[in-house]
Nucleic acid binder design. Structure first.
Lengths: 235, 235
DNA sequence: GAATAAAAATGAGTGTAGTCATAAATGAAC
DNA sequence: GTTCATTTATGACTACACTCATTTTTATTC
């Protein structure tokens, strides 16, 4: 419904009824204040030690008003860090060395994400927790867009190393991206839960990626011990 | 410390100081009552609509007593369903057809897990949420043991199809198990978040597993469309 | 079984996320 | 600028997870 109205107005250009009246601007400003306050407090005191009261106070709004802008405190967390995570991902993909071996490129991307989360582990835990299982369906699209960026980014990396790494033709790149991201994600969770150190996580991750990438090749790479392998093939 | 005492007593049999005095037995019974009450209520009313008061009442204990047995309500959720999930996993691995193609076997296992979660989606969401990021380190060992069972179970499946599927030698089976489970997990999350239907999830999962399994092979399998593929290759 | 120590249980109390009836602000129409 | 309708704001209030000072139960020693 909202959209129907919006479309109509948009069709004729921003002529007479600019879609940003005082009302809209006020709302936008208030939201910005809320998000800034939440971000500062989450960073300073952690997620669970920050009360919605404090956020409201700092944003200079009533306690109830906060919940007109975010359904729950958890919602706020995603709203605050969604953009930052998208940014981090995009930067990671942009900075990748396109000439490096596929697994190295993947490790560059995932490494950047790990570095991002390392800045504040308790916050990373809270964030991953909320993103993993969304309490509010309104946030679905946020996560979906983040995932699209990641999956297609990985897909691009695969496509880019197609010739160099003898990647099989006809592979669904987004599918492969999702699979590789899943391999990263399960390790990330183990790390964030203290089941494994960061070093061990990254080492295992590389091994798992290598394992999975082998499957993308037309022919398996030479085994680590190259010479004398005349045993199997007959033809 | 408890164990040290227990071991000593156990060594001599249940002679004079049975390791289960009235005290221990009472505690055990109370815990059982708590877990049973929690399970019933979570199943009947859902996790968030169940109050700790109700659980305590039904277990016939004081409201504060509950928290001597579980640090938080979320803790209770894991304690209640941990065994059930381990059971489900073990059964799934036991029932697998050892002659079936590797990917089919994997799908049997993951399919059983999906079926389990399908019984109560809201509860599955709550459970996965808590397991993914543990609020209480005391539960770490629970999750670790569940994961060990799953990773090694998958590893066994891979080992079992080694000859049939020309699996490369020298593969770290637990590592491969973790990778494949990660591929499942990321899809599970998408499903539980309503990003994808169950059908689509399972279909994509099979495709992703196939993609990754190819990497385990000495030589890639024939593509799905066998005949007439004279187009690409020249030699 | 009395005295003492240790463990376990209890429920009134506390802090906080989130609600809702009411009020204020904004925009539209004349 | 007055009236009216709609949107937005507000903070007192509620519900609930969890705490803690106090009490009760259990085990131990003589």
């Amino acid at each position: 419904m909202k959209q129907a109205v919006g479309k109509r107005a948009a069709k004729g250009g921003a002529e007479k009824v600019p879609p940003v009246g005082r009302r809209e601007r006020n709302k936008r400003e208030k939201l910005d204040r809320i998000l800034a306050s939440a971000r500062d407090l989450f960073a300073a005191k952690g997620f669970s030690d920050t009360t919605t009261q404090e956020i409201a106070e700092r944003a200079d709004i009533g306690t109830g008003t906060l919940f007109l802008y975010a359904k729950t405190k958890e919602d706020l967390l995603i709203m605050v860090f969604k953009d930052e995570m998208i940014e981090t991902s995009q930067t990671a993909f942009r900075k990748v060395s396109p000439e490096a071996p596929l697994v190295d490129q993947l490790m560059q991307v995932f490494g950047a994400m790990v570095t991002y989360h390392s800045r504040d582990l308790p916050l990373a835990r809270a964030l991953i927790r909320e993103i993993t299982i969304l309490a509010n369906p309104d946030r679905r699209e946020d996560v979906r867009s983040l995932m699209r960026i990641i999956y297609s980014g990985i897909g691009d990396i695969i496509a880019g190393s197609r010739s160099r790494e003898k990647i099989r033709a006809g592979i669904d790149l987004a599918l492969a991206g999702e699979a590789l991201f899943g391999i990263y994600y399960i390790g990330l969770i183990g790390w964030l839960n203290g089941q494994i150190t960061k070093q061990a996580f990254l080492k295992r991750l590389r091994a798992k990626l290598a394992l999975s990438v082998e499957g993308l090749r037309v022919a398996p790479a030479e085994p680590a011990t190259p010479a004398r392998r005349t045993r199997n093939r007959k033809s």
